[in-house]
Design a protein around this nucleic acid. Structure first.
Lengths: 231, 231
DNA sequence: GACTCAGATTGATATAAATCAATAGATCAA
DNA sequence: TTGATCTATTGATTTATATCAATCTGAGTC
C-alpha cells in the first residue's frame, strides 16, 4: 500500500538544479516537463525495486534516499545516499532495461520522474547532454573503484571512518542528524551491525566523534580522515 | 625502456570487431583509422599507468592484458582481464582526463590507439555510437556491483571460485593456460596470495579442478558455480 | 652442473571481525 | 500503564583469513 501523491502542477516553479541538465535547451526542458510527473514518497517507501523494469529517470527534488543492492543471504549493500539535486539513471538503460538496484526513501521525499523516452530523445539529440550523462557515469565508476579499495584493503575502522566522512559531505556539515539506521550504516560500510556499533563506540570513547542516537558530530576530522586513509 | 613498435600500416586488413563500433559509418571509421596508431607491447609492459593523462581509447587487437587499480600499501586490485575485441575508455574522459587505472600486458599484445579527439567527435556526431558507449559503461557498472557483492558477502572460496569461472569465460574454455601469476589471481579475488594457493589446493584435492602450474581445468563446473553463488 | 633469484607452496600463528546470545531502550497501541 | 515489538547495545565465542617464516621449484646464467 503506497501513499504516494502524484502532482503535475508547479513545474515552472521548480528551481532544483540537476547536474547535467544545464546542457538542455528550452524545448528539451519543455519535453522533460511534459513527460514528467512529480511523486511524493513517505519515509521508508520504495521508489525503485531491484529487478523491475526501469521506466523513469528519477530526480530527487527534496529529501534523502538510499540506493542499495541486494547481496547474499538477504544482506544489502548501501551504495550511496541520494539527496536534492541528484538524479539517477538505471544502469539497465540501453542494456536489459531492468533496475539493478533499489532506492528507498530515508525521509519524506519529493521526486520528479522523467520518462525513459524523453530522456533517450534528449540523449540522442543533444550531444552536450549526452556528454554530461557519460561524465556522470564515469564519476560513478570512479566512486565504485574507491569502494572496491575500501572493501579490499581497509579494515572496519577505516571503512566506518570513510562512511562518517561521506555522510558529513552528504549532509554538508560536521554535525548532522541521520535517518539511516545502524543497520543501514553497517550496510554502507560493509561490516556487521554489531561491529559498526563497536567502532562508533570506540571513536566516541576516543573523542573523535560525539554520537547520541542519530546525531553524529565529527570532533576531529583530521584523525577520522587519517583512519580512513590508512585503513 | 619500452620495446613498443609503432605500425600505421595494415588498417584495411583489420578484422577485429570492437563491440559498439558497429554504429560507426564509413567516414567515421575512416576518421578513427586516420587518428589511430597500432602499438605492439611485450608481456609485462605497461600500456596505461594510473594517474597519467589519458590521451587514447585503447583497443585490444590480439593478446591479453590486466586492468588494475592501486589500493593501499602497494597492493593492487585486478578489476578485469582484457582480450581481443575489448576497448577501454578511461573513466577520466569528460571528467579529470586522468587514467584511474593501470593496464599491463599479460602476453605479447597488439593494440590500436584511437585519439580522444576522434573518439569524442564520433561520440558527439553519432548518437547510436554514443548509446553504445553508455551501454558499455552501464555494463561495467553492473560488473562492479557484482564485484561489491563478491567482496562484501562472499568468503575466500566463493571469491576464488568466481575468479576461476570468470577466467574460463575469458579464455572461452573449461581448460585453459593463464599468464596471470598467483599474485594476480589473488588480486583478482581480493585475497592474499597464500590464501589463494590454499583455496586452489583445496579445490584440487576435492577434484573440482585440475591445476598444474598455470594450467587450470574445471572438472565440475556445477560445484564451482555453486560455491561461487553461495559464497 | 652448480648458482641465483623469483615465484610458488606449506605450516604455524596472530588477529580481525562475524556470529550468537542476552539485555536494554524506545516507540506504539490498547 | 502494560505489553508488544523493533532497534540498539554489550559481552562471549568462533571462525575466517592475513601475516610471518621457512622451504621448495624451476628458469635462467655462468
Amino acid at each position: 500500500m503506497t501513499n504516494s501523491i502524484i502532482d503535475i502542477t508547479g513545474c515552472e516553479k521548480c528551481h532544483v538544479k540537476f547536474s547535467g541538465f544545464d546542457a538542455l535547451n528550452e524545448s528539451e526542458l519543455y519535453n522533460f516537463k511534459q513527460s514528467h510527473c512529480k511523486v511524493v514518497y513517505q519515509q521508508g517507501e520504495t521508489i525503485i525495486k531491484e529487478g523491475t523494469r526501469c521506466a523513469n529517470i528519477i530526480c530527487i527534488k527534496k529529501g534523502y534516499a538510499k540506493l542499495f543492492i541486494k547481496g547474499l543471504e538477504n544482506k544489502n549493500i548501501v551504495i550511496k545516499v541520494l539527496k536534492e539535486g541528484d538524479f539517477i539513471v538505471s544502469p539497465g538503460l540501453f542494456t536489459d532495461n531492468l533496475n539493478h538496484f533499489s532506492v528507498s526513501a530515508l525521509t519524506n521525499l519529493s521526486t520528479c520522474m522523467i520518462s525513459i523516452e524523453a530522456f533517450t530523445r534528449a540523449f540522442r539529440n543533444n550531444n552536450r547532454f549526452a556528454e554530461n550523462v557519460l561524465k556522470l557515469n564515469h564519476e560513478i565508476t570512479n566512486e565504485l573503484y574507491n569502494q572496491l579499495i575500501n572493501l579490499s584493503h581497509k579494515k572496519m575502522t577505516g571503512r566506518v571512518a570513510s562512511t562518517i566522512i561521506y555522510l558529513s559531505q552528504i549532509y554538508n556539515s560536521k554535525g548532522f542528524h541521520t535517518t539511516l539506521s545502524r543497520q543501514d550504516l553497517a550496510d554502507l560500510s560493509s561490516v556487521s551491525k554489531e561491529s559498526l556499533i563497536r567502532v562508533l563506540k570506540d571513536f566516541k570513547e576516543n573523542g573523535i566523534i560525539t554520537i547520541a542516537g542519530n546525531h553524529i558530530k565529527i570532533n576531529s576530522f583530521a584523525t577520522l580522515s587519517n583512519i580512513s586513509r590508512i585503513g
